[in-house]
Write a protein that binds this DNA or RNA. Structure first.
Lengths: 140, 140
DNA sequence: CTAAATGCAAACGGTTTGCAGGCGA
DNA sequence: TCGCCTGCAAACCGTTTGCATTTAG
């Protein structure tokens, strides 16, 4: 049998309702690793011939984030994006040429910085946001 | 005599017009070091009894940024903020309790990371964005 | 005098909300 | 059946734009 989408499985375990829209939206994140906006998700659903209402997508993204299935990603264009929360911690390289978003791992370095901040400023870091904007190999 | 605002002086040197609104808006950034949104600027002008139109503020902020006097700051609430471009390079500590924004210097560490990215990913970093969200000393 | 700056109203784009009806468990 | 989910229209909020008017230099 086909393996169930991990997000759907987790939702089922939490006794959340599994509706067609919810399943389809969760599916968008199972498939790809790049952060998706509400519009991206809507477009993907349409491509997959699933009836998709923008409002529902917005609500569903919030719901999945509240359930801890998705994590919000903020880039400098002010558009909300989300990615699977289960992805290993990483940061983003955003290409100003083609818009591609890639992930990089820098966790070791960042947690060092966070400790330094806690020590020097008495500021308790809960989370951080680090993105690099520039040109990818193909857009140089 | 009173020393002229450094932003106004720089604008004068570039032969830009100095209008009352422009002078007042520039003044907001001379005074404080925390990033200001258009609304913040408007409120500050009103407090200073200067007639302030939101549209003008938006246009002026863009203008001052284009002239290299201000730099845009993006935090996770999607609101555009600006700060003096002449401030030494730094990153922000945003308190989730009281909203205070403080600066921290981490430049050495960041440029190390950028070099690592250029090497490992053939990605040419033009700029980065790094903010820490958490609780300040008073909001613990 | 002329180009640039200003104010107002209206447009915009992403996101949220209120409400009536639909549907999963 | 019951309460969550959905769709639609309208509200929202920060930001931008068009246009007629004012103003700095």
């Amino acid at each position: 049998m086909i393996r169930e989408d991990p997000i759907v499985a987790a939702l089922r375990a939490r006794k959340c309702r599994i509706t067609p829209a919810r399943r389809a939206i969760a599916g968008c994140f199972a498939a790809r690793c790049k952060p998706l906006s509400a519009q991206d998700v809507c477009a993907a659903l349409k491509r997959g011939r699933v009836r998709a209402n923008l409002t529902t997508v917005y609500r569903e993204l919030q719901f999945l984030a509240a359930q801890g299935m998705l994590k919000a990603v903020f880039l400098q264009d002010g558009v909300q994006r989300y990615e699977r929360a289960s992805l290993p911690h990483h940061h983003h390289l955003v290409c100003l040429g083609c818009g591609t978003i890639a992930g990089v791992d820098m966790e070791g370095d960042l947690s060092r910085l966070e400790r330094a901040i806690a020590r020097a400023r008495a500021f308790l870091v809960e989370r951080h946001s680090l993105e690099f904007y520039g040109r990818c190999r193909d857009c140089r």
